Simulated scan of single mutants.
Amino acid sequence: MENSMDSFAGRMFGSTVRYIRRFLFRVLSVGPIPSHIAFILDGNRRYAKKWNLGEGMGHRAGFLSLMSIMKYCYELGVKYVTIYAFSIDNFKRRPEEVQYVMDMMLEKIEGLLKEESIVNQYGVRVYFVGNLKLLNENVRMAAEKAMKATSNNSRSILLICVAYTSTDEIVHAAQESCEEKWTEIQSSTDARDCEIIEEKREGSNVIKLADIERHMYMGVAPDPDILVRTSGETRLSNFLLWQTSNCLLYSPRALWPEIGLRHLVWAVLNFQRIYPYLEKKRKNI
């Protein structure tokens, strides 16, 4: 009898929380809703140290927070969610820590494909963004499998930045643009038409901003409207440097595993407050 009462109370509490969340989201929807929110998942190791948790338990707690935040974003109507999961610089950490994160990443990628996962519940298409050649073979193959398995989803988009830094992305885009233009020049030379070659050299063979942006890893999504970095840090740490010139930066003091609904609501309220200014800046670019 006592267990039944506890179960009933739990269901009632869950229903009440969902009702309050839906009410908050309906209020927020009166104003502009961000299309794209990016997150730097900072503070997993500090969280584990704070609560004397075992090795890697901070990352596991952080994953649970990520699932909650993703659900809130998709319920609110945010189409694109980007997370900074693993930097290229993180490969410099202790080998056993890197291996643990890679193993957990493999486990969680496989979990995303399960029928009851948030990916299938919300029709999420998954992209892994970064220099994927740096990942070990098992993780890379799992990432490719997840991207292929979700390629027909279109309601929401999840971009997972792994083996990523913004400087690497920019160098990659510049190299790809140069190779593309060189191929075009070679094709023109094969045509053996000097007048056409000279005409092309004057204009179309110049690398333009659009060429660089087309080859960015993040070219599959619009620039973020909000970038959230937890643990009170205000550094971008080589994340989306190209894409964040006109977005709200929000740095709650909470460590990543501590982030919750209130932080998301506050970020969106601040975005709505400065939305006219951001729109004006974007139109003047």
Rank of each mutant, 00 (worst) to 15 (best):
R93T: 02
H59Y: 14
Y84I: 07
P95I: 02
Y80M: 08
Y72V: 10
L66K: 15
Y74W: 14
Y72L: 13
G54H: 03
E97S: 05
E115Q: 14
E110T: 12
L113I: 05
M70Q: 15
L113D: 01
A48K: 11
S65P: 12
Y100L: 15
E116W: 14
V101D: 01
A61V: 06
E110Y: 08
K79Q: 02
Q99Y: 02
M57D: 09
M67G: 07
L66G: 02
S117E: 06
G111C: 14
L64D: 05
R94L: 09
S68A: 12
E107A: 11
L112G: 07
I83N: 04
S68M: 07
E55T: 05
K79V: 12
Y100C: 09
A85C: 08
N90D: 06
E107Q: 15
Y72I: 12
F86S: 04
I83W: 08
W51Y: 15
F63Q: 07
R45Q: 10
C73H: 04
L64Y: 06
P95W: 07
V78I: 11
I109A: 14
I118Y: 09
G54E: 10
S117N: 03
F86D: 02
V78A: 05
E96C: 02
K71Y: 04
G62V: 01
V78S: 00
A48I: 04
L66E: 12
K50A: 13
I118V: 12
A61K: 07
G77S: 11
A61N: 06
N90Q: 08
V81P: 03
E96R: 07
M70H: 06
E110A: 10
K108V: 11
K50Y: 10
G77M: 10
F63V: 03
A48W: 05
E115K: 15
E55M: 06
I88E: 00
D89Y: 11
V78G: 00
R60D: 04
L113R: 09
D89C: 03
R46H: 11
R60A: 06
S87D: 05
M105K: 09
F86C: 01
E96F: 04
I83R: 05
A85E: 06
V98F: 03
K114A: 12
S68R: 14
Y84C: 08
F91E: 08
F63I: 00
I118K: 01
M70R: 11
S87W: 04
H59G: 09
F91A: 10
W51F: 15
S117K: 09
M104T: 11
E97L: 13
E107F: 13
E75M: 03
Y47E: 00
L106H: 13
L64I: 03
H59W: 06
E75T: 01
G62C: 01
S68N: 12
C73A: 13
A85M: 07
H59D: 10
F91Y: 14
F91T: 09
Y74E: 05
L66W: 15
G111A: 11
G58T: 13
V101L: 15
M105L: 15
I118S: 01
K114V: 10
M104V: 14
I83S: 02
G56F: 00
G56K: 03
A85T: 14
E110L: 13
Y100D: 06
I69C: 09
N90L: 02
E75C: 01
M57A: 08
I88F: 00
L76V: 00
Y47F: 15
I88Y: 03
M104K: 10
V78L: 02
M67H: 05
